[in-house]
Design a protein around this nucleic acid. Structure first.
Lengths: 340, 340
DNA sequence: GGAGTTTTCGAAATCGATTTCGGTAAAAAT
DNA sequence: ATTTTTACCGAAATCGATTTCGAAAACTCC
C-alpha cells in the first residue's frame, strides 16, 4: 500500500493533477463542482501531501535543528522543551542533537543539519572554544543561526543569554547582605565564559563590599559534580573553620557541599550559608532547601526560537538581517540555605 | 547565494548532470579523469547533496520521530538521549515531540510525523488509554512503530518494557527480607498499567510472605510528586505509628516521604525503611540516600531503536514483520534508606 | 452574430538527485 | 578489414507537488 498522491486523486476523477492541486490549495480558477469532488475524494482516500515533495518545491523544510551539549540535564532539557513546543505551534519540527561537549561532534552535526536543509539552527556550544569555523560555515550558508547560553562572542549572530557576571554578583551580594564575611567560591572550569563571568561577579561583589579577595578560598570544579562539591567542602572546612559563605557555580556542587556539612553536623545556614546557581529541581527538595539563582531555561528556549523565526522570515524580503543579543533577567531564589 | 547543485558542477565542467551524479556515487561507467575532475570541483564548490531531493527520489527520509510524555524528566530524557545517539550513528536524525500527557496532542503529532514521511516512530504513550486509533493509523500506514515503557497491550507492534510487576515484587521483597512487617505503598494513578503492575507486585510480595494486605496502607498519588510523598507520609504516620516500610511508585514520592520523616526526626532506615522506583539522580544525593529500582532508560532507548531498525530494514524484502516484545531486567539498588 | 470578457482547465516547467537505457567512439578480436 | 566488445557518456523518466502560461469554453454586451 503506497501513499496516496495527487496523481491518484486525479486519475480517479479523470482530471489533471494540476486541477487537483489547485482545488486543494483553494485557487480561484477551479469550479466549485470539481473542487468539491476533489476534496471529497481526498478525504475518502485519506490523502496527505508528501512534505518531502513540497519541501523540494518550496525550498524550505519547515524544520529546525538544535544542538546542545547534553540532553539529560535539567537546564538544557527545559530549553529544549520550550523550543520544541513553540516550534510545533508554528508548524515546525525540531531535530535534536547532543554534542557531548565535543567540538568534533558539533562539526559533524552541523553538516548533518545543513545536509537536511533545516531552515534554521539553534545552538548552545560545547565549551568555550575559539574554533568557530563550523559556525561560520552556517552563516556563510545563509542558514539562520541563534546561539543561547553557551555562546561565542566572536561569531556574528543572534544570541540569548543571561548576565552571568551580574547574576553571580547578586548571589554573592545576597550572602554578604545576610551577614557573611568570609565567602568561598566553588567555580567552574577555567575556559567556559559562563564560569569565568560568575567568578568575576564573585570578585566584584567582594570588592564592592570591601572584602579582600583570597585565592585560597576559590576551588575549581572541573566536572561540576556533586562529588566535587562534597570534596571541596571538606577541604575548605579543613583549612578554614571560620568560613561562613559559599557561592557554588552550580546547584549540584552546592548540594554536594550541603551533603558534607550535614554529615559533619555543621549547621546551614546558621554557621555557613550556601547559594547555588541555575535553580535545579533538586535544590528545592533537599534539606535545607537551596538558595540559588534562577536561570530561565524555558523562557530562553522560547526567546531564542523567536529570534530565529525573525531571521528566517524577514518582514521585507532581501533586507539584511541585523543580529541581536537578548539578555534575560535572572532572579535570586531565597530558600533555607541562606539567612534573610 | 544559492546551494550548490549537481547542475552547477555539470555546467562548470561542461558535462551532463548524469555524469556528475555517477562520478560522485562511484558508478563504474565514468572515466577516471572525469571522476577526478568532478570530485575536485565538488570539493571546491563545497557541494553537499540536497537530502530533500534524495529523499523524494529514494522514498525514505532517514529520519525517525519520537513522542514522549515529557522531555524535562530524568527517565525520558535518558531514553531520548540513547535513541538520538544511536540513530545518529546509523545516519538518522530524530524529530522529538512531547505529548504533555495529552491524547489530542499525540494524535496531532502522529499526523505531523506521518506528513514528514519519517521512516519510523518511537512512542511512550501519554496515559494508559484505550483510544489507540492514531496508533492503528501508523500501522495501517505501514510506518514501523515501536512502543516503550508506557505501552498499550492491545496494539500489535514491537515493544520494549520492564516488568513492573516483578520489579515491584523484588523491591517489596527486599523490604521484607530486611525485616519490615508493616509495609505501606504510595501507588501511582489508577489508570496507567505501570502503576497497576507495581501495585500488583506489592500485593503479591505481601501474599508470598504471609503478610495480610491492608488497603488503608495504600495511598494513591495522582501527580506523582514530591509533595504527595510528603503529605502521604504525614497522613500515614499519623494513623500508623508502627509502620516500618514504604514502597513508593517513584523516587520523587519516596524523597518527599524521606523529607517528612527527616523533619519530624523519624530515623530512616532504622524505624522506617523506604524504597523508591526508577533510580533518579536525586535519590543518590539526598540523605539518607534512597534505595530504589533501577530502570535502564538509556538501554531501553537503544533497544527500542534497534527493534525499529529491524522493522525498517527487513533482511528479506517483502517479508512479513513479526512484532516482538523485549522485557529489560531491572536491578535493586541498595542504599541507605533500607537495611541490609 | 461577432467582439470582448470571464471561467475553467491542463500541458509543461520546476525543485535536485538518481537510474535506466540507448548510443557513440575507441579498443580488441577475428 | 570487418565484426565484436568495452568504455564512456548523456537524454529522459522518475519521485510528488506547485505554478506559470496559454488555450478552450462559456458567457456578456451591443
Amino acid at each position: 500500500m503506497r501513499q496516496i498522491t495527487l496523481k491518484d486523486i486525479a486519475s480517479k476523477l479523470n482530471i489533471s493533477v494540476t486541477a487537483v492541486s489547485k482545488a486543494l490549495k483553494g485557487y480561484s480558477d477551479v469550479s466549485k463542482s470539481t473542487r468539491d469532488s476533489v476534496i471529497a475524494m481526498a478525504e475518502e482516500l485519506h490523502y496527505t501531501p508528501n512534505s518531502v515533495a513540497v519541501n523540494l518545491r518550496t525550498q524550505q523544510t519547515k524544520t529546525i535543528g538544535i544542538i546542545i551539549p547534553s540532553i539529560v540535564h535539567q537546564f538544557f532539557s527545559k530549553v529544549l522543551s520550550g523550543i520544541i513546543e513553540e516550534a510545533e505551534k508554528k508548524g515546525y519540527l525540531v531535530f535534536t542533537l547532543q554534542s557531548n561537549e565535543s567540538i568534533a561532534l558539533e562539526k559533524k552535526q552541523i553538516d548533518l543539519l545543513l545536509n537536511k536543509r533545516v531552515d534554521g539552527i539553534l545552538m548552545s556550544l560545547a565549551t568555550e572554544n575559539n574554533d568557530i569555523s563550523h559556525l561560520q560555515k552556517v552563516i556563510d550558508n545563509k542558514t539562520p543561526l541563534v546561539l543561547f547560553d553557551k555562546i561565542s562572542k566572536i561569531i556574528n549572530c543572534s544570541k540569548v543569554v543571561i548576565d552571568d557576571r551580574e547574576s553571580a554578583y547578586n548571589a554573592v551580594t545576597h550572602l554578604i547582605k545576610s551577614g557573611c564575611k568570609k565567602i568561598s567560591h566553588f567555580r567552574g572550569p577555567l575556559n567556559p565564559q559562563n564560569s569565568i563571568d560568575r567568578y568575576l561577579g564573585y570578585r566584584k561583589a567582594l570588592e564592592d563590599n570591601q572584602i579582600k579577595y583570597d585565592p585560597s578560598l576559590v576551588y575549581t570544579c572541573e566536572a561540576v559534580t556533586f562529588e566535587e562539591g562534597y570534596e571541596f567542602a571538606k577541604k575548605l572546612y579543613g583549612q578554614h573553620k571560620d568560613i561562613d559563605g559559599i557561592f557554588a557555580v552550580a546547584d549540584l556542587v552546592a548540594v554536594g557541599a550541603i551533603a558534607y556539612f550535614n554529615e559533619i553536623g555543621v549547621k546551614i545556614p546558621n554557621q555557613i550559608s550556601i547559594i547555588g546557581f541555575s535553580n535545579w529541581f533538586i535544590g528545592s527538595v533537599i534539606s535545607p532547601s537551596l538558595s540559588t539563582v534562577d536561570q530561565p531555561g524555558y523562557k530562553m528556549g522560547k526567546k531564542a526560537l523567536k529570534l530565529l523565526f525573525k531571521e528566517m522570515n524577514p518582514k521585507k524580503k532581501g533586507e539584511e538581517f541585523i543580529p541581536k543579543t537578548i539578555v534575560l533577567p535572572t532572579e535570586i531564589i531565597k530558600r533555607n540555605s541562606t539567612l534573610n
